[in-house]
Design a protein around this nucleic acid. Structure first.
Lengths: 138, 138
DNA sequence: TGACAATGATACAATTAGTACAATTATGAC
DNA sequence: GTCATAATTGTACTAATTGTATCATTGTCA
């Protein structure tokens, strides 16, 4: 497929640089199969406008993804998802992405004074409620 | 809201260090609700100019507030009020706070294509590793 | 006077934005 | 159909904005 929507959520106060957030999320969506080879990403300017950031910030993220062989940027043409890297790499990227996301969540929850038990319980509850109301995956 | 005015009154003859006065007043305004989470504080230079002090003095105050987890300073981006510290809130508010935090995390992880099992496992792992390397709470 | 805390000066690092340019593709006159 | 030209897309380099680190200066007080 071409020209998929690419939904990204940028948190401007998360402490993570915007370009890093873009990299992480594209990486995660590729690793999870939401983005597939030959999918075209938005142009640097289009994505920049959507996220309300400078297009160089997007370009920087794209460059990093390009160097990681996850996307292929072609001047004058556009940006595309490359071939799926070997499963080992994919799995590593997936894991790193989830790890970063989770670490932010856990450290923030602990910082706010919640116990590990409370956190574990709440995550479990939310996952369950997602079971009932939503898709039955896993 | 972002970029609120932040009115501070510095008394140069009070004997209290300037940075202490900044810390106290920001703290007070956060506690009283004048400053809310995600509000952006003035840059160290802007506030320094307004107060007619060296920007390092402001930076020092910001560093203390940052270490106290009241604000979050980010090089190249700015300074923001963090989440309201949880100390004296009721059990119900506490729970709602964790619930909101967790929901954001879980929905984001699911959106990025991770399975519930992966999420549960990763949270568990991170909580464990916090046991070993960090504080021994719970 | 000497120690120490507070403040200031200076240089630096990280992030994002601005500007000009190069490569490719689309369009239109002929 | 072919070529000139404009539009679109990514690239490179630079500037601006922000916080950080280190050391010097000042001032107070025992």
């Amino acid at each position: 497929m071409t020209n998929k929507k690419l939904t990204l959520q940028i948190d401007f106060r998360s402490g993570l640089p915007i370009y890093t957030q873009i990299v992480n999320q594209v990486q995660a969506q590729v690793a999870s199969g939401i983005l597939k080879p030959d999918d075209q990403l938005p142009t640097v300017r289009a994505l920049a406008e959507e996220l309300r950031v400078n297009f160089n910030t997007v370009a920087r993220a794209y460059r990093i993804l390009d160097e990681a062989r996850i996307i292929s940027t072609q001047q004058g043409r556009g940006t595309f998802i490359t071939e799926i890297p070997p499963p080992k790499v994919t799995e590593r990227l997936r894991r790193e992405s989830l790890e970063a996301l989770t670490q932010r969540y856990v450290s923030e929850a602990l910082r706010q004074g919640f116990s590990k038990g409370e956190i574990r319980q709440m995550v479990s509850d939310q996952l369950k409620s997602w079971n009932e109301s939503g898709k039955s995956e896993e």
